[in-house]
Structures are given as C-alpha cells and as structure tokens.
Amino acid sequence: MSDMNPVIRWFHQLGSPPYFDRFAARWAPWGYGLGLLIMAWGAYGALFQVPADYQQGDSFRILYIHVPAAWMSLMVFGLMALYSAIALVWRIKLCEILAMACAPIGAAFTFVTLATGSIWGKPMWGTWWDWDPRLTSQLVLLFLYLGVIGLYHAIDDRRTAARAAGLLALVGVVMLPIIRYSVVWWNSLHQGQTIRVFGESSMDASMLPPLIWMVIGTKFWFAGSLLTRARADNLHREAGKDWVRRLAEAKA
C-alpha cells in the first residue's frame, strides 16, 4: 500500500464511505460557490453587456441559459452512463452512487433546456412547442432521466436498483448522438449548430464571453450538486453505521 501511486491511493480512499462524506462535505460548497459566482458574472454579461441581436432583439439573451443547460443535459447523461458502466463492470459502490446522483441534476438541466427553448420559441417561432426532431429527442432524454430516477427508487435494495437504473442509462446513451445530429439528419425547425468548440462559431465574437462563463459556471455548480446528492445517498446507504451516528451527533 505504501508503494502505491498517490493518485490511485486517493481513489481507493475515496471508496471508503466516511472518507467520501468528508471529501464531499468539504468540496461541495466550493462547487456551488464558484459556480454561482461565475454564472452571476456570465448572466450579468448576457443581460447587460452584449448587444441585442439585430433580428431576434433581446430574446436572444435566453440563449445564454438555454445552450449551457442543453450541453449540461447531454454531458451529465454521458457521465451518468460512464459511472454506471464502471459500477456494472467493477461493482464499485461509489460509482453507483455518483451515477444515480447525476440523474436528478441532468433531469433539471433538461427541463430548463425545454422550458427556456419553449419560452424563446413563442415570440420567435410563434409557438410554445413543435414536434421537431431536436425538441422531441430532448423530451425523450427527459423521460429517460425520469425513468432512471423512477427505477432507482422503485427497488428497495439500493445496489440492485442502481444496477437496473444504470443499465437503462447505458441504453439511453444512444439518444446523445441522435440529439446532437437531429438538426443535421432531419429537416428541423430548430436552428443548426451556431457555437462550435472546435472551429469558428456563427455567433459574433463579442457575444461569446458570457456564454463561455455560463458554460464554466454550470460545470462548477454541477460538481457541487453532484457531491451533495452523492453524500445524501451515501448517508442513506450507510444508515445505522457507527460513523454516521457519530457525525449525526456531532451535527446536533
């Protein structure tokens, strides 16, 4: 053990429930705090600094929450599937917990994507909703998230539940490329790709910085939320253990 690589040793330590609890309790506030600060700065830029779009007017400012939320909805699902795959193959309990903690956060971001898209769609498209490939596939993603959450809570034994829900998460990964390329494969009302991570974006450079801040801020927020939700599940699974009792009495 003493010859072990420090990073690998740390991963082993993180697998210990009391160690993970201390780790999550320590770092979650940083994720929330930094996330909130960065998003506040991004939102300020989005609402007050960037100029209005020459066609869409100020309604385009909704994009600064719609796009980061949409990216989060896809990234969180991918991460949930990755954790689930690790948990299914190597039976690592912490990965089960992390995978299941991803689901409500991803569902929330998916809901925000759909809601903000709908709010933007009303003045721009003249309708709150359209059964367009991008919108429909994003709605299916929300149902998948809800399916994972439902399955996890429908089975009493948390380990069995996490394996069943993890399998659904893995199958659901097929939706990610469908959502990503839905605007290319089908004739979609939803606009095509505007912002490119690699290559030039169709959006003017002066409008990009708040979007970048929002994208970074949502990542930090997600880290805070993931750790807190995983901590809650970890405590639930460890109920009755002596370290939980000591922690509860210390917090009383």
Partner: peptide, 16 residues
C-alpha cells in the same frame, strides 16, 4: 424587447 420572455426564462433557471 421581449422583456417578459427573458425574465421568465431566467426565472426558470434561477428556480431550478
């Protein structure tokens, strides 16, 4: 312009 829509969208995000 479209102030109510922008406020509604940001409110949804803040509530989440």
């Amino acid at each position: 312009s479209y102030r109510e829509y922008v406020i509604a969208a940001y409110a949804v995000f803040a509530l989440m």
